[in-house]
Design a protein around this nucleic acid. Structure first.
Lengths: 345, 345
DNA sequence: ACGGCGATTGAAATCGTGTTCAATCTTGCA
DNA sequence: TGCAAGATTGAACACGATTTCAATCGCCGT
C-alpha cells in the first residue's frame, strides 16, 4: 500500500521516520533533548510528527526506561476539601513537569490494604503519595519496588527510600507552632479562659501532633490544658462533638478545631442547635484555610499554611529524589500563620 | 549468580517462571483467565507470584494489547464540589473494574487546548472523560486515536466514537424536567411570583439547557419567565450576581441557582449582605444536592439526581463501548427529583 | 591530498508482556 | 492396545519506544 497506514489509531515513530526519510532512531532522538542530531533534521522530524499527531508512546517509553512518569495518589475521599485542594495543586505541578497523577481510593477509615498496593504497583508509578497514615514505609517499599519514593502525608511530609544503609528520609516540615501561638494569643487577648479542642481522627499522628502542640502553647501561656472533644475531621462528627461538649460537658468559651471542615461543624452546632453566638459567646479557630473558609456563613478565623508553596516544595523533593535516588536526605520547612476573620472577637 | 535477582526492584514473569519450573508463557497465562493451563500449575504459579510480590507490568501489557487500562479525566478544577464527588465515584467504580483514573487539569475557563490533548494522548488512555464542554468530538477523535471512546460531560453524557459510517453516539440522559417541575410547583405553592435564575457559565450548554427547561416549566405553569442573573457556577460570582439583582435590578421573591455552590453564594449574599431572610423574604433552590447542601448553615432545598447511579450507568456505557467498539449506540436515562430542606417555605 | 577528530547516523539489542502456532501430553472410547 | 480429539505447553514473534556501538560524515590543519 502506498499510503502510510495508521496503527491502532496512532502514528508510530516508524511512520514518522518513513515520511521524513530518516531512521526510527532519529525520531526518538528528535523527542529527547541532549541527544546528537542535526538541528535541521530535528526540526523536520518534529514538523512531520506534528502533522501526523505523533507523540512517543509512554508505555513503550516506560518499558525501556523504567520511568512511567506516573505518580500515584492514594486518598480515602477525593471530596475532602483539604485533600481535593492538595490533589488539584499537585496535579498542576506534576503536569508541568511531565508527569500525570494516578488516582486510587482506599477505604475511608484511613487504612490501606495490601490488595490496593499490589493493584497500584501494576501501574508502575514512579512515586506514590499517600494521603493515608497507617502504612509502614517498609510495607510500601516491599510492595512498590525500588524505583518508587514514598511520601507519607501526615504529620510531616516524608519522601522515603529504602537504601542499603537504612531508610533514606527527605522531610518537609510544617511548623505548626507559629500559627498556633498567634491563635492562642488572639483568643487569650479576647479573654478566653477555657479552650476546647475538637480533634481529628484520634489515632492520626497528625492530629496527635497538633493536639500536643496546642497543649504546649497553651500551658506556656499560662492557660489550662484544652478540653478534648473527640472527633474525626468530619463536619458531622465535629457537629455532634460540639453538642456533647456543651450538653454533657461544661462547655468552653473558645474552640479550636483540628481542621476547617470540623470548624464548620462546630459553628453550625453552636449557632443553629445550641443557640450560641459566635464570636460573642464562643470563639472559633480552624486549621488549614481551605477555600470555603472565607464564605460569609462561616468567615472562619484559621491557621493557614501556604498550600501552593507546600506542594511546590513537595514536588521539588520528589523530583530530586527521582533523578538522584541516592542523594543525601534533604529537609525543607514551611511556616504557618493565623488568618483573622470573623469567628474571633 | 545462583540467587534469582531482582530487576528494577520488581519481579518479572521470567523469575516466577524459573522458580516454578515452567515457561514464561505459563506465567502469563496464569494471570489471564480463559486461557488453557492446568489448574494445579496455575495455583502453583500464583502462589509463587505472591511470594515474589509479582504482578504483570501494565506498561508491557499495554504495549502488546493496546489497552492501557487507564481512563483520563480532564477537569478544570478538582476542588469544585460537584466534580470532586463525581471524580471520587468514578475512581471507585473504575478501580473495581481494573482501571485507574488519570487526572489532567485544564484552564479554569472551561476550555481545553490541543497541547493538553497531545500531552494526554502520550499516556494512551483507553477512554477520556472530559468535564469540559467546548471541545468538539471530532477534535478529540483526531487527537486521541481510534481506541479511545470519548465522554463529553454536559449537558447529557455522550460516549462517542468515530466510525466509518459517521460518529457513534451512546447517551446518558439526565432528565432535569421532573426535578424542576417539583421545584417550581413548590415555589409557586408558597406564593412565589417572580423567580430569578442565577446562572452557570453562560456559554455552557448544560447551563443553557437548564435555563431553557426552567423557563419552559415556569411558563407552562403560568408564571412569568425567570429574571436571568448571569453567573458562572462559582460561589463568588453567584454572591455578586445576587447583590446586583437586588441593588441594580428589582429583586425577586425566589431564586433558582444553576448549582448548589452557586446557591450558597446566593444565600450568603441575601443573609449577610442584603439583610434578607430565607425563606421568609426570599426562597432559594439549588441543583445537584452535593454533600455540603445539608450543612446547617445552608440546609439547601435542591434538585437532586443520584450521582452513584449516574456514575454506574456511565461506567457501564464506557466498558461496553471498550469491549465492543462497533456495537450499536445505546441510551440510558436518569431521573431527577426535589430534595426539600430549609430554604423554601 | 591526507590523517584525525568530533559530530551524526542507523543496525541491533533490550524492556516485560501477550499471542500464534505447531508440538506434545491426556483422555476417552472402541 | 490403539487412535483421535482435545487439553496443555513452549518457541518465536510482536508491541513501540530507548540505548549501545560501530560506521560514516564533515571539517580542520598540515
Amino acid at each position: 500500500m502506498e499510503e502510510v497506514g495508521v496503527t491502532r489509531g496512532r502514528a508510530t515513530a516508524e511512520m514518522v521516520a518513513k515520511r521524513a526519510n530518516v531512521s526510527r532512531v532519529a525520531v526518538s532522538r528528535a523527542f529527547n533533548p541532549h541527544t546528537s542530531l542535526k538541528q535541521e533534521k530535528r526540526d523536520l522530524i518534529l514538523r512531520i510528527a506534528q502533522e501526523l499527531n505523533y507523540t512517543p508512546d509512554r508505555a513503550a517509553r516506560a518499558l525501556v526506561s523504567g520511568r512511567s512518569h506516573l505518580v500515584g495518589i492514594i486518598v480515602p475521599d477525593v471530596c475532602s476539601h483539604w485533600e481535593s485542594q492538595e490533589i488539584d495543586a499537585l496535579t498542576t505541578a506534576l503536569q508541568g513537569e511531565g508527569f500525570a497523577t494516578l488516582l486510587f481510593k482506599t477505604r475511608t477509615d484511613y487504612s490501606m490494604d495490601e490488595k490496593l498496593l499490589a493493584y497500584m504497583r501494576g501501574f508502575n508509578p514512579d512515586s506514590v503519595i499517600a494521603f493515608v497514615e497507617n502504612v509502614k514505609p517498609a510495607i510500601l517499599a516491599r510492595f512498590l519496588g525500588r524505583a518508587v519514593p514514598i511520601y507519607v502525608h501526615y504529620p510531616d511530609v516524608q519522601v522515603e527510600r529504602e537504601v542499603e544503609k537504612g531508610p533514606l528520609h527527605d522531610r518537609l516540615n510544617v511548623l505548626q507552632r507559629a500559627g498556633l501561638e498567634q491563635a492562642v494569643a488572639l483568643l487569650q487577648g479576647y479573654g478566653a479562659q477555657q479552650i476546647a479542642y475538637v480533634s481529628g481522627v484520634r489515632k492520626s499522628l497528625a492530629n496527635q501532633a497538633r493536639e500536643q502542640m496546642l497543649r504546649t502553647v497553651m500551658v506556656e501561656r499560662g492557660l489550662p490544658p484544652p478540653i478534648i472533644a473527640p472527633s474525626d475531621y468530619s463536619y458531622d462528627m465535629a457537629y455532634s462533638a460540639t453538642l456533647d461538649l456543651f450538653r454533657v460537658g461544661k462547655g468552653a468559651d473558645a474552640i479550636f478545631a483540628a481542621n476547617d471542615v470540623g470548624a464548620f461543624g462546630v459553628l453550625d452546632a453552636l449557632r443553629h442547635e445550641l443557640g450560641l453566638r459566635v464570636p460573642e459567646d464562643v470563639k472559633v479557630v480552624g486549621f488549614d484555610d481551605i477555600a470555603q473558609s472565607h464564605w460569609k456563613s462561616y468567615n472562619l478565623t484559621t491557621v493557614k499554611f501556604d498550600l501552593q508553596e507546600r506542594v511546590r516544595a513537595l514536588v521539588r523533593l520528589i523530583l530530586r529524589r527521582l533523578n538522584n535516588p541516592d542523594a543525601p536526605a534533604l529537609e525543607e520547612t514551611l511556616q504557618t500563620r493565623l488568618v483573622v476573620r470573623g469567628t474571633v472577637g
